[in-house]
């Protein structure tokens, strides 16, 4: 958090200070030259070419941009890329090699998606939840998933899929 503050502080003086930043995304190293305040979301999408992480609101209100930073769910739309340097970043593309993560399998089993736009964020949030809590109650699921909006209204299936994923281990 301290790092975040420092970073945004410096940005008032050097708004377009380009920097070279080393990132570890899905087990691969990337070097990007960007304004260090650029949210990780846009670095992933525009510079690294990983479009699975979605833009929904840009203000940490919808969860579409959720990734894992050292295993914890984070909203990449408000995370300056500089704060992600040297940390382990996992996106939906790197959650598993071929979609065999229990959460992905459960999502397919329940055929959760409608339009699908919110689903990578939902899946990343759910995977982080299950990592910390292998057997969440309904209430715990609701609390953990509250930050992820689905306009299509697939919440009942998401909840059922999380329970299935928990049972798949």
């Amino acid at each position: 958090m301290e790092f975040l503050c420092k970073n945004s502080f410096s940005s008032t003086y050097l708004p377009f200070n380009m920097a070279t930043i080393d990132l570890h995304v899905n087990g691969k190293k990337h070097q990007v030259a960007v304004d260090p305040n650029t949210p990780l979301l846009w670095v992933l999408r525009d510079h690294i070419g990983l479009a699975g992480t979605k833009y929904g609101c840009g203000v940490a209100q919808c969860g579409a941009c959720t990734v894992h930073l050292d295993g914890e769910a984070m909203r990449s739309c408000v995370l300056p890329v500089s704060a992600a340097a040297d940390k382990k970043i996992t996106t939906i593309e790197g959650l598993s090699e071929h979609g065999e993560h229990p959460v992905q399998k459960a999502w397919l089993e329940h055929d959760v998606a409608q339009c699908g736009y919110c689903q990578s964020g939902q899946i990343m949030q759910a995977a982080a939840l299950l990592k910390n809590n292998a057997n969440p109650t309904d209430e715990e699921i609701e609390t953990a998933m509250q930050g992820n909006i689905c306009r299509c209204g697939t919440y009942t299936r998401i909840k059922a899929a999380i329970k299935t994923a928990a049972s798949l281990g």
């Binding site: 990983l50 479009a51 699975g52 992480t53 979605k54 833009y55 996106t91 939906i92 593309e93 959650l95 598993s96 071929h98 979609g99 992905q104 999502w107 397919l108 055929d111 998606a113 699908g116 736009y117 689903q119 990578s120 899946i123």
Partner: peptide, 14 residues
């Protein structure tokens, strides 16, 4: 499209 959705394949206009 289920598999492409859960693995984050690009498919939307965005």
């Amino acid at each position: 499209d289920g598999k492409n959705i859960v693995t984050g394949k690009p498919m939307f206009g965005m």
